[in-house]
Amino acid sequence: MAACRACRTRRATPRRSIHSSTTTYHRKTPSIAHSYWPLYHVHYFTNSLDSQNTVMFILSPHSGVPIYRQLLEQIRRMVASGQLPPGTELPSIRDLGVKHAINPMTISKAYAMLEAEGVLERRRGKPMTVANRTRVRSLPAKRLQQLEPHLDQLLLAARQLELSESEVVRALRQRWEKSNDTIHRRTAAR
């Protein structure tokens, strides 16, 4: 019996993931963890994240947001949420640079800033690793701060669609509850 890499559910009939030929996961679509892979597909890697796993970040060079900032924010979020647990090794600067065809200095800038923040740590001759949880577990207010750009985007879209505050809040609450259900079901299934 194989365990689903996305939610660790054990199922008698595993399916192949479309994202990786070696990954098994248990259903074709639903559930946020399965369908919204950009945010969650790191689940597939958490146990075996090694320097070869360079595809876990989504970097778009043509965005107005500098690449180092995109990388910085993605790693910060993944660490804050525990998707990248302490001790996880990050891809080397060269691997990540070649894979995404982006300037290596951009990557080292992001890594260095995260090191200064205490999110990552560098040990001699070893890849960058996620620092100990006790030091990086940030306060809710700090984590909320990271949500701000996304809230701004939501706000912008809502304004353009001429939706009222109560309509947006209601929709958000519904989504929240729905995703809660999924998480509960997932925990129960473990």
Binding site: I93, R94, G97, V98, A101, I102, N103, P104, M105
Partner: peptide, 15 residues
């Protein structure tokens, strides 16, 4: 172009 870029990145990674 992509292959060329990978080569440039690997040159730049030497530092």
């Amino acid at each position: 172009r992509r292959q060329f870029m990978e080569q440039i990145v690997s040159i730049a990674a030497d530092g």
